[in-house]
Design a protein around this nucleic acid. Sequence first.
RNA 1: GGCCCCAUCGUCUAGUGGCCUAGGACACUGGCCUUUCACGCCGGCAACACGGGUUCGAAUCCCGUUGGGGUCACCA
Length: 507
Amino acid sequence: MTSVDSAPVTSASGSDIRVRFCPSPTGTPHVGLIRTALFNWAYAKHTGGKLIFRVEDTDAERDSEESYEMILDALRWLGLHWDEGVDAGGEHGPYRQSQRGEIYEEVIQKLKDAGYLYESFATAEEIEARNVANGRDPRQGYDNFERDLTEEEREALKAEGRQPSLRLRVPDADLSFDDLVRGEITFKAGSFPDFVVVRPNGKPLYTLVNPVDDALMGITHVLRGEDLLSSTPRQIALYHALIAVGVADFVPRFGHLPYVMGEGNKKLSKRDPESNLFHHRDRGFLPEGLLNYLALLGWSIAPDRDVFTMDEMVEKFDVEDVNPNPARFDVKKAEAINGEHMRQIDAEEFPNRLVPYLQAAELVSTPVTDEQLATIRAASPLVQERMQLLGEAPGLLGFLFTETEALDYAADALKTLKAGAGETLTASYEALEALEDWATEPIEAALRAKLIDELGLKPRLAFGPARVALSGQRISPPLFESMELLGKDATLARVARLRDRIENEGA
RNA sequence: GGCCCCAUCGUCUAGUGGCCUAGGACACUGGCCUUUCACGCCGGCAACACGGGUUCGAAUCCCGUUGGGGUCACCA
């Protein structure tokens, strides 16, 4: 057996760096998982190395094809491209573990032949009972008691009908490694017992396939969640065995990324909607905005700046700068960052981003008509700088795609109508009806002349009723521009409609 | 409980021994701008967990305490 300290650690430091993203397809993509993907991606791009995308689908119970599709959808939506792996090909495939059975069998055989693996018959219940019987904490785990079972003892157990799992014989020595985000970490001998790598049915476990694939795929830097930190010494022990039997050439470097936390002080739960990437997409986050925010969870680009593009991140990102503290997912800040990106989107492009959200609300058709698109384009400049999420578009622009007769008045909008609102609308109607040049400037001039100068109203009171009449909302795009967009007929009809309603129902 | 990780404003962070009476951002808040809401601008509130060292000097280094988290699966 190789000594613990003698195995070579990778020396990759530039374009020879190979990182990987290897999710298990269970459930919907979690923002913490995406943050891990982002850091791996950024590190590969920054160093000129390669990102390998592998799928760890060895748990038939929980994995699903649907979940696998969602992960692909997520990475593509975000623009996190990989160089090698599922759907991209490469010389180390296949990249789905469910298709690598034969490879594992071969490795298991080598490890067995070299004496690194031994048969273990104890069940979880028996291990716990054994701890109790020996006066130890039941949570202590396996005590390696089957390491030196004799041939006769093993045969006897098998004769009872028991099928053994296979455990790796872990070196009885302290084990240290230099974590890329946390520095030197040492685990004391005995704190990482022999662990199961192959089920009794012969199927390998994550504890085996993850390092084996990393080794076979030449992964040099393993950047993953902090939850895997305590399994690192065992993995390194496995690496030593893999090197000894010629499967691996070196031990990779490890970097353990901090948790993404939720409310309270708990890891953001998969059950929390905020953990669901698609929940944020549905609400109207931009890929660039969400990615920017996620990058801030454990990393910062500069002391006085937190809005940046992915190109800028790639230029600056180094995993050694990642902060080891767990970070709380703050949706308010995420929205603010997203708002910054909304304003940075090219004005020509912005309307296109709105379309899917207006379609989801069934305000425009799919595909969108030329006329609808023209309206969206015209309205875009009015809303671009007042939105934080694309999902606000239906609320803000819905009135442009609603027939006057179908327009609903929001309760909080009606509440803003004070006494005299009816008269104000009548005056507005008169001023507008006489107008020939239907454009923002003249509309504003006419209304100001009538309502402010002539009637002496305060602007808020003068224009509030018309805003409700047009949009049905308390909050809307700028009024005069909205009138121009809506056209004279519809504007007059809406002003009259609300006025009539006030007169008939007392508002 | 054993092992391991973490510890700066409410939140995300900058800070790698003197530039720190601790900087930025979000949130909150006062004001300006203003046809609503935003945007923008100006201002405010607010932190080095605690205790020992080391040092001329510590948020920064060391030790301890406390607190939080993770892990100890034939799940990944």
